[in-house]
């Protein structure tokens, strides 16, 4: 097939562009992570921090490290963990005010204006993908709290694309809210792939529209290595892994 000769980045770019021509409710964003290719460099974690300017105590993406086997047959194993964007998200069910919901394109988002900060969803998520914004700043205690930590303009966690300002200690959203990965919606809607995907050194992350049978992700989830985390809980993650 022709696509296979292209660089995966170019393929995903093309997939993304094609998906954006469809109406939003026809898309189904999905991520596939190839664990054989992940080298545990944490570039995705850092890229996410920089892109979404997440405060202390919040990390939309982490890479879980582990060791398999016993000496001398030991191997390091890495498991990147963004939000699974579950099709049946328990975090959404428990929210007392419906502040968090699943968009038609499959991304689970939080409306910072609605969230009361009860943290029920943090406990309901089986993947630890939700965080609480306690109102801390990395640059707190330095000569000045940097501007970029206070404005969260690009973290478009809701469809309205409202602009948010974090103020230390105040209940000024998103401070006091639950926060989570949203597949970099703000980038997607401007035709760019999620930050973790473009930064991935091992080329282990793939992204696209699962409802498009021609897309790279649609082909990858047909792979025999494919699987999802905690399948038994019935959450139906839309983040897939190639084991």
């Amino acid at each position: 097939m022709k696509t296979l000769n292209l660089d995966v980045m170019a393929v995903m770019d093309r997939d993304l562009r094609r998906a954006l021509t469809k109406p939003a409710e026809k898309r189904r964003w999905s991520m596939v992570i190839d664990l054989q290719r992940c080298i545990g460099c944490e570039a995705c974690t850092v890229a996410c921090k920089a892109e979404n300017k997440t405060p202390p105590g919040v990390a939309y993406n982490v890479v879980i490290e582990g060791e398999v086997g016993t000496y001398p047959n030991v191997r390091r194993r890495f498991l990147p963990r963004p939000c699974m964007q579950c099709a049946k998200p328990p975090c959404v069910t428990v929210c007392p005010v419906s502040a968090t919901y699943r968009r038609p394109d499959g991304v689970v988002v939080i409306d910072y204006e609605e969230c009361i900060g009860c943290r029920y969803c943090l406990n309901a998520c089986p993947y630890g993908a939700r965080y609480f914004d306690s109102g801390e700043f990395y640059t707190e205690g330095t000569p000045r709290v940097e501007q970029y930590e206070q404005t969260v303009t690009r973290d478009v966690a809701d469809e309205l694309g409202r602009e948010w300002r974090r103020v230390a200690g105040r209940e000024s959203s998103p401070v006091g809210n639950a926060r989570k990965c949203h597949y970099c919606l703000h980038r997607l809607e401007n035709g760019a792939l999620p930050a973790c995907v473009v930064t991935c050194l091992g080329r282990a992350r793939y992204f696209g529209d699962l409802s498009d049978p021609e897309s790279l992700v649609a082909k990858l989830v047909a792979d025999e290595r494919v699987g999802r985390l905690k399948e038994e809980l019935g959450t139906e993650p839309q983040t897939y892994y190639l084991f």
Partner: peptide
Amino acid sequence: ELIPGLRAAYVEPKL
């Protein structure tokens, strides 16, 4: 731990 190793994956006081 929700996923073994999750806590060591990213270390910060509030985590």
